[in-house]
């Protein structure tokens, strides 16, 4: 896509792109059965839903409890039903449960930061979690990633498969984050920021943030012979 709503591969402000972006133009491949089909999640081969990230074995994680919820929709606003949504995030201190995370912030034994859900008939998903902390990364000196939750979404076909990040409103780190700013179009960029939703908040318990994912169309539906 070249309309500025998707990031480029080559974006040197995010230094990891420098040696990892292809230099040759992509080859235009017409959509065939291979692209308009994709894995389905009707039987639970992918494992059970895991929508409560806020505790491990009943022990509460440290941090601000939040509810994050939304829908997966297609370009026409129709719900994308029964598709797998996987999420991961840093803990409240900005540290991932991951061997490669060397940030000197505390790990929380009661927070793994991974979840998954299959969307319901309205395309809805919902997670109870902990507000992730910002974390430093070595992209440039003293660079910090704004708080975010990573989202992986399948949709109905191989062509709709995508991974993105959800941000939080009012985060001052968004102003300078090159990953966020890799999206040229400001309106598209800002749609990655969730909205505080008092209706979603639970009294005396957790703050609510709402965010929807819009998937591209799957293309024409061919008949398999």
């Amino acid at each position: 896509m070249t309309d500025g709503t998707q990031p480029p591969y080559d974006f040197p402000a995010y230094t990891s792109t420098i040696k990892r972006h292809p230099k040759r133009a992509l080859i235009e491949a017409p959509q065939t059965l291979s692209e308009v089909t994709g894995p389905t999640f009707a039987s639970p081969w992918y494992g059970p839903n895991a929508t409560d990230l806020s505790r491990v074995d009943g022990r509460e994680a440290q941090g601000q409890r939040i509810i994050v919820a939304g829908r997966v929709l297609d370009e026409d606003g129709r719900p994308v039903r029964g598709t797998l949504v996987e999420v991961w995030q840093a803990n409240a201190a900005g540290r991932y449960h991951h061997d490669g995370d060397q940030h000197d912030a505390p790990l929380d034994p009661n927070f793994i930061g991974a979840g998954q859900a299959v969307t319901d008939d309205e395309g809805r998903w919902r997670f109870l979690t902990i507000r992730p902390g910002a974390y430093p990364w070595r992209n440039t000196y003293n660079a910090w990633r704004p708080a975010h939750i990573h989202f992986s979404v399948f949709g109905p076909s191989f062509a709709t498969r995508m991974i993105t990040q959800m941000y939080f409103p009012g985060d001052p780190l968004l102003e300078t984050d090159p990953v966020f700013h890799s999206i040229p179009d400001a309106a598209a960029r800002n749609r990655l920021i969730s909205a505080y939703d008092p209706q979603l908040s639970e009294a005396e318990y957790a703050l609510g943030y709402r965010w929807d994912v819009i998937l591209r169309g799957r293309g024409a539906t061919p008949v398999e012979s």
Binding site: E75, D76, H150, S152, T164, S182, I183, R191
Partner: peptide, 10 residues
Amino acid sequence: MAIPTSSQTI
């Protein structure tokens, strides 16, 4: 038509 959500790195 709504604009598809922008991609971000894994």
